[in-house]
Simulated scan of single mutants.
Amino acid sequence: MSKFWERTFFFGCFLTQGSSYISAYSYGLMHRLHHVHTDKPEDPHSPHNDPNPFLLMWATRNSYFNIYSGKTPVEDKYRKNLPEWKAFDTIAHNWIFRIIWIGIYIAIYATLATAWWQWLLLPITIIMGSFQGMAVNWWAHKFGYENFKMTNTSKNILPFDLIFWGEAYHNNHHKYPARANNANRWFEWDMGYQSMRLLNFLGVIQLKPQPIQ
């Protein structure tokens, strides 16, 4: 995508992720390291290394912040073609904005909540990004079916993915990490890829030819 659209999506991520906002550049590095070291001790988020999903979420958080702060050295070959906007991340990634977002969430709950138990969802709202990442990276290496025999534990969680927008096809993704479409079999449906097709049609992004299977 063009630099204009790239930065538009930076703002979009900030508005939708809120208190869970993470740097696209740092997450890109972490995701590439996950593919290189899947299920090994160096893997930044694998249930193979952590006994429960909450420890996995904490390990992922620490891995991410170590990459973001530069404490974890990353080879230059993994930095190629990642979206980066340092000035924006310096502001959006600040703890002050995280606290502001939490205040906004509390105000929304105070306005719209109609029962006490609804407030129990507030912590999940605050850490939604981490919660979603834990769900995908825990379940997709623990439960599901495999289209491809791999040297790792990656699995496809759902046969028809309307919940994770294609991220449920983790086994497919590990087999073909460069493909935009994570679906592989006739019954698999990748909503994320369909949205990319629409953005490609509108000229917002330009999809590259899909690698041959």
Score class of each variant (00 low, 15 high):
1 M>F: 10
2 S>N: 14
4 F>G: 10
5 W>M: 07
9 F>W: 11
12 G>V: 07
12 G>D: 05
13 C>L: 15
15 L>V: 14
19 S>N: 10
20 S>Q: 06
20 S>H: 08
22 I>S: 04
23 S>F: 12
24 A>N: 11
25 Y>R: 01
29 L>S: 06
29 L>Y: 10
29 L>M: 09
31 H>Q: 07
34 H>Q: 05
42 E>I: 06
42 E>C: 01
44 P>N: 08
47 P>A: 05
52 N>K: 09
53 P>A: 09
53 P>C: 11
53 P>L: 10
54 F>L: 12
56 L>S: 04
58 W>A: 08
58 W>C: 03
64 Y>M: 01
64 Y>L: 00
65 F>Y: 13
65 F>M: 02
66 N>R: 14
67 I>V: 07
67 I>M: 01
68 Y>D: 10
71 K>A: 09
71 K>Q: 15
72 T>R: 13
72 T>W: 00
73 P>A: 10
74 V>N: 01
75 E>P: 06
75 E>I: 05
76 D>W: 03
83 P>Q: 11
83 P>I: 04
85 W>M: 02
85 W>N: 13
87 A>F: 15
87 A>E: 14
89 D>V: 08
92 A>T: 05
94 N>W: 03
95 W>M: 13
96 I>K: 15
98 R>C: 05
102 I>V: 14
102 I>F: 05
102 I>C: 08
104 I>N: 09
105 Y>T: 05
106 I>M: 13
107 A>M: 10
107 A>F: 03
108 I>W: 01
108 I>R: 02
109 Y>E: 02
110 A>F: 05
113 A>C: 04
113 A>E: 02
117 W>Q: 15
119 W>I: 13
120 L>V: 06
120 L>H: 07
121 L>Q: 11
124 I>V: 15
127 I>A: 12
129 G>C: 06
132 Q>M: 14
138 W>R: 01
144 G>S: 08
145 Y>G: 05
146 E>A: 11
147 N>R: 04
147 N>A: 02
147 N>E: 08
148 F>I: 06
148 F>N: 00
149 K>N: 13
149 K>I: 12
151 T>R: 14
156 N>D: 04
166 G>D: 00
167 E>M: 06
171 N>G: 06
171 N>V: 03
171 N>S: 10
174 H>G: 00
175 K>R: 12
175 K>D: 02
176 Y>Q: 03
178 A>W: 05
179 R>K: 10
181 N>E: 04
182 N>I: 00
183 A>P: 00
188 E>G: 00
189 W>R: 07
190 D>N: 10
191 M>E: 03
192 G>W: 00
196 M>E: 12
197 R>A: 04
199 L>C: 13
200 N>M: 05
201 F>A: 15
202 L>M: 15
203 G>T: 09
209 P>T: 07
210 Q>F: 12
210 Q>L: 15
211 P>Y: 12
